[in-house]
Amino acid sequence: MAKAKPKIQGRVTFEEDRCKGCGLCVNACPVNIISLDNNKINAKGYHPATVTDMDKCIACASCALMCPDVVITVERL
């Protein structure tokens, strides 16, 4: 049996106070782990984007590519 490919894991960090809560990253995420945090209001008065399950992140950077405010940094573990 072929070996399973090593799973790529990533970590994304949001600069939450600069986020405008537009949701383009939520839409772009292929593993659907980003959501707008309705319990939080940032300095600008928006609900910032947040990751619900970081273990599922595949470091594809799709969220960062779509973010108009460049608040996302992506790392590959």
Binding site: G10, A61, A64, L65, V70, T73, V74, E75, R76, L77
Partner: peptide
């Protein structure tokens, strides 16, 4: 750990 994406120096 490698950084895949970060803010550019161009902004």
């Amino acid at each position: 750990m490698a950084i895949v994406f970060q803010k550019t120096r161009g902004l």
